[in-house]
Every structure is written in C-alpha cells, then in structure tokens.
Amino acid sequence: MQFGIFTVGDVTPDPTTGATPSEHERIKAMVTIARKAEEVGLDVFASGEHHNPPFVPSSPTTMLGYVAARTEKLILSTSTTLITTNDPVKIAEDFAMLQHLADGRVDLMMGRGNTAPVYPWFGQDIRQGIPLAIENYHLLHRLWREDVVDWEGRFRTPLQGFTSTPRPLDGVPPFVWHGSIRSPEIAEQAAYYGDGFFANHIFWPKEHFIALVDLYRERFEHYGHGTADQAIVGLGGQVFLRRNSQDALREFRPYFDNAPVYGHGPSLESFTEQTPLSVGSPQEVVDKTLTFREHFGDYQRQLFLVDHAGLPLKTVLEQLDLLGEEVVPVLREELDAKRPVHVPDGPTHASLKAAKTDAVTSR
C-alpha cells in the first residue's frame, strides 16, 4: 500500500492573517513539503497541473525533476497531467527524461482538468474532451512501447517514422493512472489498457465514485488483466490533524470556510460527513480512512491533500509529522494485513521491470 500527498499548488490568502505567499514562496514551499513527505516516511508526492491563477504548478516535470535531485526514495507523480491539451509527444519525452533523472521513481496521472478555458488556450475544443483524452493517450501508449511510430489521428499532425527520445528507462514506461471524478469513459479507458484508475473523491459523496470504481474493476477483468479485485485503484482524500478533534475543527474552520473551491458553501461538519475530508485527531483520521476499503475494496494508493486553502507552511509541516508518525503507520499495517495475497501492491518501477522480465522469460 502506497501513501502520499498531492498538491494543487494554489496561492491563497491565509484567512486568519490576510497574508498571501508570493508565487516564489509557494513554489519553494511545495519543494519543502515534498522533502518533508519523504522524511516522515510517505511514499508518494504528486503535483497538479494548472495554467491559471491562483495556481502555480504549470510545469510539473520541472518541479518533480528538482524534487528528484533532493530526495532518494519518494515516488514522484502528478495529480493531473492534462492529456487533452498537452501534446502526447511532449508528455512521452518529458516523463521519460524524468524517469532517467529520478532512477525510475516516476509515474503520472492522466486527467482532463477542471478549468474550461485551458482548452482554447492550447488550441483545443472542450467539447472534444473525451475524444481528445482517448486519442492522445492511445498515441502516448504507443510512443513508449514502439521504437518507431507512424501515426495519423484527428487532433494532431501525422507522425512518420518517429522515435520519442529518450526511450523509457529499462524499456519500462512510467505507470499511468487515469484520474476521473465524473466520466465512465475514463474508467473504461484505464481498464482497457490495464492501467490504474484514480478516484479523487474529495468533493462528492462516495456513492458516485463507488460506481466508477466498480465499473473500472468489472472492465479490467473483462479485458483479461486479472480479476476485478486485482485492478489497480487509487483514492484521494483531505486531512487536517491536531491532537484532539476540538482543536482541529477550531483551527481548520476559517480555512475551510474561505477555501477557493468549497468555501462559502456547506458547513465543515456537513462536508466532512458527506466526503472523505477528515478533520480531527490522528485516530479519527485513521478510523475514517479505513472505511474507504469498505466502500471501494482493497486498493493500492492513498493520497491526501494537506497544503491548500492558505494553510501556512509551518502548519502543513506539522500535519505531515502527525500523518507520518501516527496515521500512516497504523493504516499501512491495517490495510496490508487485510489485503489478500493475490491482490497486488502499489506499482513501482522495480515491480514493473520484474513483471516485464517474467513475461519475457515465460515465453
């Protein structure tokens, strides 16, 4: 079981002080947060991709390459790589390069994003979002697995005798998660390729995401990649931790009430009841997170959002201390003990390389 954090990289005023970090301060803070995640024993750091204020991570591979040079074990990922508006050729090259720099500690999550204007900014039509996601990923999948590619599709110029460089490390492409909050077509796509499906169920009730994960599992088995319970599932979540729940609720409430996405909407208590948001003591966060397995089955990756809504860096680092010392060790032990032997652990470069070697020797 892999545990980690993801960041959306928002630049948001602290509602308790009015202070707003500069873009430079926020970017450097994200690096500090990633290094702290490794220090406290987490497995994954993932960055979003945004091209509009108030967000700063417009170039995730630049950020992750910098983090790679300052960490040793952390898996570096994205919590969205925009498959709709990025050129698949550039994605293939950028992430293969990052693979080499990070000695394989790389995967990525494909998504369509949640900002409609990004499509025309990059010359695309939002009404073609699903077809773009399907076609672009089909090309990316081939670019990483075929040394020479001929290609013709609807959304980019043709390729003739093209070789993406560098080639993936050890001939093993980065593992791909397909992230979705609403589209069954993306769950189907993940199942078709035998990739991972990531349900970032941080805003809506669990029932909506249970249906998507169940569809993915069913279709994963249909395409012959394994049994439904062997499908590779990741989940999102949000936490705010203090030693006791009263302090956690009191301290987090002004950040929740003014958050860019869900602020000025449902109450903190209502939102916590209906979504994966956990605000409380370490034990309360453990208890709520353990319910995710009851809803979604055994899964391979859990990412938490901890640094949004204007929370100061000092507070975020305190969250990571509690997460790494008192929450994740308990979750790891509990969830690993319950996972059947035939259900795989989270994918790594080493496990993918071993699987490729086994497939070659068994022929």
Rank of each mutant, 00 (worst) to 15 (best):
P60H: 10
P53D: 09
A350P: 02
H178E: 05
R105Q: 00
R70K: 12
L139P: 06
V343I: 13
S58I: 00
V279N: 11
P53V: 10
L140M: 09
H295K: 07
E273N: 01
W177G: 02
V328Q: 06
A309R: 11
E334H: 13
D336G: 04
T272R: 06
D247K: 12
I5S: 05
E318Q: 14
S47M: 06
N136E: 11
F203M: 12
D247S: 12
D358Y: 06
L108W: 15
V279Q: 12
V149D: 03
Q189S: 13
T12D: 11
S79L: 04
S278T: 11
L212S: 03
P282T: 08
T289S: 13
H308M: 14
P266D: 14
P120C: 09
F3I: 03
F256C: 03
D214Q: 14
L169N: 05
A350Y: 01
F55S: 08
A19L: 01
K288V: 01
L140K: 08
T157S: 12
Q300P: 09
V327K: 03
P131V: 13
F95L: 14
S164K: 03
I91H: 04
V148I: 14
R167V: 06
L322A: 09
R142P: 01
A69C: 07
L132S: 09
K314E: 14
P21I: 08
Y192M: 13
P13G: 02
H201G: 10
P168T: 05
V316N: 04
H208W: 12
E135L: 10
R242M: 04
L352G: 07
A211N: 13
R35N: 07
F271H: 15
I181V: 15
F271V: 01
F95W: 15
P117Y: 06
R127L: 07
T289W: 00
V89I: 15
G224V: 04
L212P: 01
D10V: 11
D94G: 00
R145I: 00
A102Q: 05
V316P: 10
S77T: 14
A337L: 03
R332Q: 12
M110A: 15
M30A: 15
V213N: 03
R145K: 08
P13N: 05
E146M: 09
D107A: 02
P60N: 10
V360L: 10
E207G: 05
I232L: 14
Y119T: 05
G104E: 04
P54D: 09
H141M: 00
W151L: 03
I232A: 06
H342P: 00
F220S: 03
D229C: 08
H138P: 00
I134C: 03
V239W: 07
R242H: 07
D170N: 14
E284K: 10
Q160D: 11
G161M: 05
N258T: 15
P15C: 10
R70P: 04
P254H: 10
P184D: 13
P329A: 07
F203P: 00
L143C: 07
E152I: 13
A231G: 08
T20Y: 06
V106L: 04
